[in-house]
Simulated scan of single mutants.
Amino acid sequence: MRPLTEDEVRASFVNVVDEEIRQLQLPHDFLLTDWDHLDFLAWRDPEVRGRGYVVTEQDGKPLGVALRAASTTSRARSGMCDICHTLQPADQVSLFTARKAGDAGAHGDSVGTYICADLSCHENVRLAAPLAPSEMRASVDRRIDGARRRTERFVERVLA
Rank of each mutant, 00 (worst) to 15 (best):
M1N: 02
M1I: 05
P3Y: 06
L4K: 09
L4F: 06
E8I: 05
V9F: 00
V9T: 10
A11S: 11
A11M: 01
S12A: 13
V14R: 09
V17D: 15
V17I: 11
I21F: 03
R22A: 11
Q23Y: 01
L24C: 15
H28P: 01
L31V: 02
L32T: 00
L32C: 01
L32W: 12
T33R: 13
D34N: 14
D34P: 04
D34G: 10
W35K: 00
D36N: 14
H37P: 00
H37W: 15
H37N: 14
L38E: 10
L38F: 05
F40C: 02
L41C: 02
W43H: 11
W43I: 03
P46L: 08
R49N: 07
G50A: 00
R51F: 01
R51V: 00
G52H: 10
V54P: 00
V55I: 07
V55N: 01
E57D: 11
V65Q: 05
V65L: 01
A66T: 05
A66R: 13
L67W: 04
R68H: 07
A69M: 13
T73P: 01
T73R: 14
R75I: 10
A76V: 00
G79A: 06
M80I: 01
I83S: 09
C84K: 03
C84S: 13
C84T: 04
C84W: 08
L87R: 08
A90G: 10
D91S: 14
V93S: 06
V93F: 07
S94N: 15
L95W: 15
F96M: 07
T97S: 15
T97N: 11
A98T: 06
A98C: 06
K100C: 14
K100M: 10
A104L: 15
A104Q: 12
A104W: 08
G105D: 04
G105L: 09
G108L: 04
D109T: 08
D109N: 08
D109M: 03
V111D: 00
G112I: 09
Y114M: 09
Y114L: 07
C116L: 05
A117E: 14
A117R: 15
D118G: 08
S120T: 10
C121A: 02
N124E: 04
V125C: 08
R126F: 05
P130S: 08
L131R: 02
A132E: 14
S134H: 12
S134W: 14
M136A: 15
R137P: 01
R137L: 13
R137E: 13
D141N: 12
R143C: 06
R143N: 06
R143H: 12
D145K: 01
R148Q: 07
R150I: 00
R150T: 05
R150E: 11
E156N: 07
E156Q: 15
